[in-house]
Design a protein around this nucleic acid. Sequence first.
DNA 1: GCTTGCTCTGAAACGCGTTTCATACCATAC
DNA 2: GTATGGTATGAAACGCGTTTCAGAGCAAGC
Lengths: 320, 320
Amino acid sequence: MTNIRDIAKMAGVSVTTVSRVINNHPYVSEEKVSAVKAAIKKFNYHRNINAVHLSKGKTHLIGVVVPFSNHPYFGLLIEGIANAALDHNYKLVLIQTNYEETKEMEALRMLEDKQIDALIICSRICPWDVIESYSVYGPIILCEDSRNNKISSTFIDHYKTFTMALDYLYQKGHQQIGYTIGRQTGTNSSQRDAAYKDFLISNALCFEPNYIFTNRFDVEDGVNVAEHLLDMKNRPTALLVTSDQVAAGILTGCRENGLAVPDDLAIMSFDNQPISRVMHITTLEIPFFEVGKKLFQQALNGKEAAHEEVQVRLIERKTV
Amino acid sequence: MTNIRDIAKMAGVSVTTVSRVINNHPYVSEEKVSAVKAAIKKFNYHRNINAVHLSKGKTHLIGVVVPFSNHPYFGLLIEGIANAALDHNYKLVLIQTNYEETKEMEALRMLEDKQIDALIICSRICPWDVIESYSVYGPIILCEDSRNNKISSTFIDHYKTFTMALDYLYQKGHQQIGYTIGRQTGTNSSQRDAAYKDFLISNALCFEPNYIFTNRFDVEDGVNVAEHLLDMKNRPTALLVTSDQVAAGILTGCRENGLAVPDDLAIMSFDNQPISRVMHITTLEIPFFEVGKKLFQQALNGKEAAHEEVQVRLIERKTV
DNA sequence: GCTTGCTCTGAAACGCGTTTCATACCATAC
DNA sequence: GTATGGTATGAAACGCGTTTCAGAGCAAGC
C-alpha cells in the first residue's frame, strides 16, 4: 500500500504539501497541486482513514444506542438521526442493546476510547450517575427529559402530553381511562405514570390497577390487550396507547371480537406512524425527523448540557 | 491523556510488556502484570482505539448499507445482523442511502479506506462491476442472488419462490393473478418478473399490465392498491404482495370498501412480520435472523465469494 | 526605505499501540 | 555435557496523516 510519504516522493514535494493538497489547503502552488494529484491518481492512493482518526482524535462517527432496531419507533428515530448525519458527513454506529446494561456500557466505553465522537442514547438502562460519569469523554445526548441532570437531551414532556391527552378524553366524556405502556421503568414511563395518577386525583377518579397494561410494544401485544379487555367486567371506556403499533393491534383485536371503536372503547395513540393513518387512529404525532435532527445537532455541538423540548401534535381521526 | 508509554514508565516495564498485559499475552510474570494493572488503574488509562485500528489495520466495524432504516423489512434485517455482530464483538456502521448512488459509493469508499472491515449491502443501486471493483479492499456481501457474480451473497431465490407462490394460487383456482413490488430495478425484482412471465406462459394466461403494481413499499401504498382495484373492470382475483406492510394496507383498504378477502381477492404476502400474524395474512416467511446471521458470518469470513441460499416457508392463514 | 503581512514550502514532532527481533534464563532431553 | 525449547523482557521499527514551527520570497502601505 502506498502512503503519503510515497506520494510525496513521487511528486517531488514534502509530506506536508501532499497533506495540504488532500485537504484543500489554499497555500499550495498550482503546479505542485497537479503534481500531487497526478501521483495520487497514478498510484491509486487513498489515505488510511485510521491514521487520520488517530491524528485528529476524531472519527466522524456518532454512536446511536437503541434497544431494538426493528421497532418502528426506533426505526423512525434512527432514520431521523441518519438523515441529519448524512447532511453533515457523519456516519452512525448502531449499538443495539436489547436492553442489556453491558451493551450500553460498551457504547459508553466506545466514547471513552474515542471510537465515536458523541453518543446518542435513544433509550437508557444505565443509571444517571454512570452516564454522567462518561460525559467527560464526549457529548452524550438522551432522548428523555433530563432537565434535572447534566446530560443534554431532546425530549417530549410526557407529563404534559399525557395530561393533555387525558384531559381531552375526559372532556369527551370518558371517566374510565386506562393506558398501555412499554417498559415500566425509565423517565418517560414514570412521567406518564405521574401524569395519570395526578389526573385521577384532580378529577376524583378511582385508580384501577388493571386499567394499566405494561410491557406492550408491538401489534401482537395490542391484540392481547383487546383480548384481556373482553374478559373484564368493568372495562375502561378509553385507552391511551403509547405506540401506534399497539393501538393497531388493539383496534384489530376489538374488531375481531365485536368491540366497537370508539363507541365501546376509545383509543388514543402515540407516534403517528403510517399504520395509524391507514387505520384512522387518533394519535399524538411525534415529529421524528425534528427529534432526530435535534439529537444529531446536539451531538455535534456537544460541550454544555442543553435541553430541547419537542412538541407533539394531536391528530384527530376516528378512534376517539 | 496518559498513553501506553506513560504507563510503561510508571510500572517500570517496557511498552511491549504493557501491551502484553492489555492483550492477555501469556508470557508476562505475575508481578509485572499486577504492576501494570495497578498503573493502568491509577491513571485510569484507556488505550486509544484509533491507534489500535491504525496498527492492526482492522476496526471491528462492519458497514451495513440500507436504503431506509424505518422500513420493517430492513429493520428486521438490521436486527438480525446486529444480533450476530453482538456475539462476535463487532459493531455496525449504518449507512442509509435513500437509494442515492453517491451514498452507496461512500460506503464502498469506507471499505477502501479501511474504516470498516467488511460491507453488507442490503439493497444495491450501484452496478455489479463497480461493486466488484471494490471487493479487492475487503469482503462485500449482498442480499440478493449473486451466483453469477464474484461477490458473496445470502439470498432468497425469488424466481423459485415466486413460481411456487404463483403455482399455489393457481392450484387454488386463481387465473387472474397480479403482484405488487417495491422498486422495479434490482435482481430480486427482475427474478420475480421473470417468474411471473414464465408462469403466465406455461399456463397460457394473458399478461395484464395493470395487474402489476410497482413502487409499493408501505401500508399506505397498499391502501392505494386496494383503491385502484375498485376502479378496475377486470380485477385480479389474487395478488402476490412482496411485503406484509403493503398486504396489510391492501387488506385494510379492501375491508373499508367492501371487497371480501379472500373471496373477492386473495392476498399472499412476504416476510411474516408481526402485522401479518395479527391480520391473519397468508405469507411467505423470510427467516430474517438466519439471513442476518449468515450475512454477518460471510462478512467475517470474507476471502472467497460464497453463496448462501435461504429458504422461505409458506404460512397459510386466512387471506388465500 | 522599512515594516507588515500574505503566499508557499518543508523538517520535525505528534498522536499511539502492535509486532518483530534479539536476548537471556532456566529446565528438560538425550 | 550439550542441544532444545519454553518463559520472560525490551528496543526499535512499523502503521500513517496532521500540525506546528521556521523560514523564504514578494508585494502593498506609509
